Amino acid sequence: MEDTEELLSAVRVQEISNGQAAVVPDGYDIRNLAVLGEVPPRKAQTVAVLDIETLIDCVKREDEDACDRKSVIYVNDEKVVAVFNHYDSGSAPGWGDDTATMELHKTVEWDNWMGNSGQAMCQKEFVEFIEENFNDIKSPNPADMLTIVSKFDMHRQVVFKSAYRSSDGETKVTYDESNNTKSGEIDLPTEFTIVIPVIQGAEAFTTYAIKVRLKVRLTNEGRLFFTYTLYRPDVPERSAVKDLSERIETALPENRVIRGAIECSTHSTFAN
């Protein structure tokens, strides 16, 4: 008992620049007894959500439960983070360790089109690609687009002779059919338009029309290759983050929405 009283008497609280610190004898430390309770003293967690509407609902519920504080939402190119205890109460700072996060992943449609942009494809490969992504094409009519690029049965002996851009803006490709000495010409569009979403879980607010440029190349053997490139894909990428931020601002008019990132403080921040 005397040893315990002597130990307690050796513990003192000392003022430091960041507040107060407890000074204890060598070989001892201080523990928060609240962690030994049946329930934690407060919430401190990171919730991962898969779509923006779920994150908005989480913020509304948390703010309703808190009553005297509002969550703060940070939006950047990589993720959206809602910090429920950014403030303790009113404008007093909180620990910022109770959050909901939505990672911003690109959609399958975006990855499909970006992944093949600039890659040369033979006619068979390009036809298959158009078939797989048929519903993304807005203009020309996707059925017409597919008909044009798959004009020839892959088993027919066709030799493409020349490709040139005509005055009407289309690419004209001339060909010979070796099995019946038939010649002809087909018109290919130099660009087409796709409509695809950019961000998973926010498709309704991040879907855009994108121009796609189409080029053809003939080999010395008379084979036809297609290459498409998305025109300024950085524009819909930037627009997606901006429109996502505006969606949050509209749904949560009383909350601060900040374009940026946050590194929340922890207890160790004030330890020294």
Rank of each mutant, 00 (worst) to 15 (best):
Asn112Glu: 12
Val108Ile: 08
Glu109His: 13
Thr99Val: 13
Asn85Lys: 08
Leu104Arg: 05
Asp98Asn: 14
Ala92Gly: 03
Ala100Phe: 05
Thr99Asn: 13
Ala100Gly: 05
Ala92Lys: 09
Thr107Val: 11
Asn85Ser: 14
Glu109Cys: 10
Trp95Ser: 09
Val83Asn: 01
Ser89Val: 10
Lys79His: 07
Lys106Asp: 06
Ala82Thr: 03
Ser89Phe: 04
Asn85Gly: 07
Thr107His: 09
His105Leu: 12
Leu104Gln: 04
Tyr87Ser: 06
Trp95Ala: 14
Lys106Cys: 04
Lys79Ile: 03
Glu109Met: 09
Thr101Ser: 11
Gly94Arg: 02
Asp111His: 10
Val83Pro: 01
Val108His: 08
Ala82Gly: 08
Asn112Gly: 05
Trp110Met: 12
Ala100Met: 11
Ser91Trp: 12
Ala82Ile: 01
Tyr87Phe: 13
Glu103Pro: 07
Asp98Leu: 12
Asn85Leu: 04
His86Asp: 10
Asn112Phe: 05
Lys79Tyr: 07
Pro93Asn: 13
Gly96His: 01
Gly90Val: 11
Asp97His: 04
His86Lys: 09
Val108Leu: 14
Pro93Glu: 08
Val81Met: 06
Phe84Arg: 00
Phe84Cys: 02
Asn112Arg: 14
Ala92Ser: 08
Leu104Ile: 06
Asp111Leu: 15
Phe84Lys: 03
Asp97Met: 05
Trp110Thr: 08
Pro93Lys: 05
Lys79Leu: 09
Val108Lys: 15
Thr99Ser: 08
Ser89Leu: 05
Val80Thr: 11
Asp98Cys: 12
Ala92Arg: 12
Val108Cys: 07
Ser91Ala: 15
Ala100Thr: 15
Asp88Trp: 10
Met102Ala: 07
Gly94Pro: 02
Asp98His: 11
Asp98Ala: 04
Gly94Cys: 05
Pro93Leu: 11
Lys79Thr: 04
Gly90Lys: 06
Gly96Glu: 00
Val80Asn: 05
Met102Ile: 11
Trp110Asn: 09
Asp111Cys: 11
Ser89Ala: 10
Val81Pro: 00
Gly90Cys: 10
Leu104Asp: 04
His86Asn: 10
Lys79Pro: 02
Asp88Pro: 00
Ala82Met: 03
Asn85Ile: 06
Glu109Pro: 06
Gly96Thr: 00
Trp95Gly: 05
Gly94Ala: 06
His105Pro: 01
Thr99Ala: 08
Ser89Thr: 13
Ser91Arg: 14
Val108Arg: 13
Tyr87Gln: 03
Glu103Asp: 13
His105Lys: 12
Asn112His: 14
Val80Pro: 02
Ala82Tyr: 01
